[in-house]
Design a protein around this nucleic acid. Sequence first.
DNA 1: TATATATCGATATTCGCATATCGATATATT
DNA 2: AATATATCGATATGCGAATATCGATATATA
Lengths: 209, 209
Amino acid sequence: MKAPLPTVKRGPLYMRILREYQQNGIEWISATDIASRFKLTPIQVRKDLALTGVAGTPKKGFQVDELLIALQEFLGWNNTNEAFLVGAGALGSALLGHKGFADHGLSIVAAFDTDPDIIGTEIHGTKIMDISSLKPLVKRMGIKIGIITVPAVFAQATAELLVDAGIKGIWNFTSAKLKLPDNIIVHREELAAGFAVLSAKISKLENLT
Amino acid sequence: MKAPLPTVKRGPLYMRILREYQQNGIEWISATDIASRFKLTPIQVRKDLALTGVAGTPKKGFQVDELLIALQEFLGWNNTNEAFLVGAGALGSALLGHKGFADHGLSIVAAFDTDPDIIGTEIHGTKIMDISSLKPLVKRMGIKIGIITVPAVFAQATAELLVDAGIKGIWNFTSAKLKLPDNIIVHREELAAGFAVLSAKISKLENLT
DNA sequence: TATATATCGATATTCGCATATCGATATATT
DNA sequence: AATATATCGATATGCGAATATCGATATATA
């Protein structure tokens, strides 16, 4: 199944509103509803949803439960919605406490650090463990995603450790460029990009979608 | 000047490597250098840099100092590289401590909250102030960007307060959809999107750029 | 001085995604 | 039962950005 990248990126939005509808006991949702909720057109939403394979019914829309399951499947969240986090500093702690993730069904199931002062403590309900215990846990729990929020200088070493432990994908919050085997998927979160878009839009008042 | 959105997004990457070169006293940088540093092609980098108006010289590349200034101008960072942050919770604190921003020349010059226990304290060198003092400061300092890291339920009220104070652009880290006047630029940071891309790439082993 | 090479920069092509159009259909309404 | 309407879903169009191609040029090297 081929999946357009922008569609995948919008996936979490759909997940959120669907969960909300589900919790409120609403059975049907239309592409128009979703579009008005975010800044999208109904057509775009329909095209995205079409990729999941679910069929809507005219005048009512899509069945919330059915769509939710299909989307989850489509996004691959049946297998890979759990992650380990390494580096329980400021940013790491924030991610651990970030409500948004739970809303989408994603969960950071464990966090690791090297600082003895932090190890053993709990941050937002997640116990911080010694990094030496990471490898066996990855195998045992079948975790595929690792989140790196260590200082940039340690990023490469951390990444290698994760790969060695069997991690398949890495979410890199540092500014370091990681050199890893090709079969490892790396995604770098570029926080500054958001800032750039914002200030560019302000300084030149033009429509950059 | 028309600015392709993806180019703007890559801007911070260029800024980072340029600053690094500058600090190391390297005078010239080629598109090939930059491309190999990130996951880009030299052609793409050249096209981006062409928009700044600077000319490179064959066999050497671009002059670091000149390019840095031009890029800064191009991204509009001469005027709008300062921001206020509202909501000094977990995520807010993390952003305050995020070294990455300083590396790019962006700065969060002040932070605000409503919690009396937090007001007056310092987080990563930034003093947390009472939100009531926000409005006069925005005017006095000419700040144009506001960062919202409050709980989602308070997002709308916070945004309105910022707009009332004279803020032109808002960086929204909550999941709330903000209803604001059209002339206000809003950028929502969707953290979960990164996770979605990553897990999609892992579960279907396909090339989603 | 002559030649090789790395890089720039312009043009052309391709690709992917967003947007528009329109017929089909199921529900609600009268 | 007949009609109106909201929505889906397929096809077609258009746009923006990535990629490829190739000549020009300045530096380094022999």
